[in-house]
């Protein structure tokens, strides 16, 4: 009969040998701090050791602490997880989840729209360049996000009808092409605003009154070209709902995200309108500057037009 107690010492020794052996088999690697030589700064951050290149170009331009940045991105991750959880609950017939689901979608849209590609810079640049009314700020902010959401929903439903489950890679390919076209239109818009500013400079030299006011026609054009890029975040959530056979919930969720994104964009629009009013008031309060008011206005318009052009070029070159 095999006596375990009798052989326990042998087992202990065998176990220790086994552990030692397995650790020695990885003796080549050890977690140990050493002095990493920090060479002179490289002239360029993009260097390759072969024909292919490694892209390190970043769209990261954050003013704030790392903790704040981490909160902003991780909160979106958490909200997305909660959205998927509530969709699963709704699929199981728990209608009590609907209110929370819509509220989370709204908050998600609000935070998500802080990211680039939702039209804030365009809204801000436009309302700094052209004097706008609060209603126009609300109009532009809402129109951009509504078109942004609708284009995603429309493209997704159309592809779902045609390709069913295999649609997402096709959606991504379509989105990338639409995105590039939209960025090209942003460059064009910036150039148009710059040309208008130059024209106003010439007119101001001819003592004609320069208005530089926002117009609904321009607002609609801006809303269309900025918003036409389908929002992948909306598309993913809508598609997730469709996969769970919840088309109605998909539309409600998209609407809630749209409201959230509109709040953010409208906030930026109103902020820019108030900033522009502040600039005008400041110029009039400073009597020395008052006689240069026209020049300052056209200079601001010129800077914003150029800014939108440069932004468009940056977005176009970094589109993925």
């Amino acid at each position: 009969m095999f006596d375990i107690k009798k052989h326990s010492n042998f087992f202990c020794i065998f176990l220790i040998c086994l552990l030692l052996g397995s650790s020695l088999s990885f003796a080549g690697a050890s977690n140990k701090r050493f002095d990493f030589k920090k060479p002179e700064p490289a002239k360029t951050a993009v260097v390759a050791d072969s024909s292919s290149e490694v892209k390190t170009t970043s769209s990261y331009f954050f003013i704030g602490s790392d903790a704040m940045w981490e909160w902003l991105v991780s909160s979106q991750k958490n909200l997305r997880e909660k959205i998927s959880l509530h969709v699963t609950n709704l699929k199981k017939g728990d209608l009590g989840s609907l209110g929370i689901f819509l509220f989370i979608c709204l908050i998600y849209g609000l935070i998500h729209a802080l990211g680039p590609g939702h039209g804030k810079t365009i809204v801000v640049s436009y309302f700094i360049a052209r004097r706008g009314k609060i209603l126009q700020g609300v109009g532009l902010g809402t129109a951009i996000t509504t078109i942004h959401t609708l284009s995603a929903v429309a493209l997704l439903f159309a592809l779902y009808g045609a390709t069913k489950a295999a649609l997402f890679p096709i959606f991504e390919a379509s989105r990338i092409n639409i995105e590039k076209a939209s960025f090209a239109l942003i460059i064009l818009t910036g150039l148009i605003l710059t040309v208008i500013a130059i024209r106003e400079t010439i007119h101001s030299h001819q003592n004609e009154t320069v208005q530089a006011n926002a117009s609904w026609k321009e607002l609609l054009w801006l809303a269309f070209i900025t918003g036409i890029v389908p929002c992948p975040a909306v598309a993913l959530i809508v598609f997730f709902c469709l996969l769970n056979d919840l088309p109605g919930i998909a539309l409600l969720g998209a609407a809630a995200i749209c409201v959230g994104m509109s709040i953010t964009n409208t906030g930026f629009g109103i902020g820019a309108i108030l900033a522009r009013r502040g600039i005008d008031k400041g110029i009039h309060h400073m009597s020395k500057l008052d006689k240069y008011a026209g020049t300052i206005n056209t200079l601001i318009s010129l800077l914003c037009g150029t800014g939108i052009t440069v932004l468009g070029i940056f977005l176009f070159l970094n589109a993925r």
């Binding site: 769209s59 902003l72 979106q76 680039p116 810079t121 801000v124 902020g271 502040g278």
Partner: peptide, 17 residues
Amino acid sequence: LFCILFVFVGIAVSHPH
């Protein structure tokens, strides 16, 4: 107002999908 706006533009990131 400019300062507020600048900060707002500064936080114009965080765009993971």
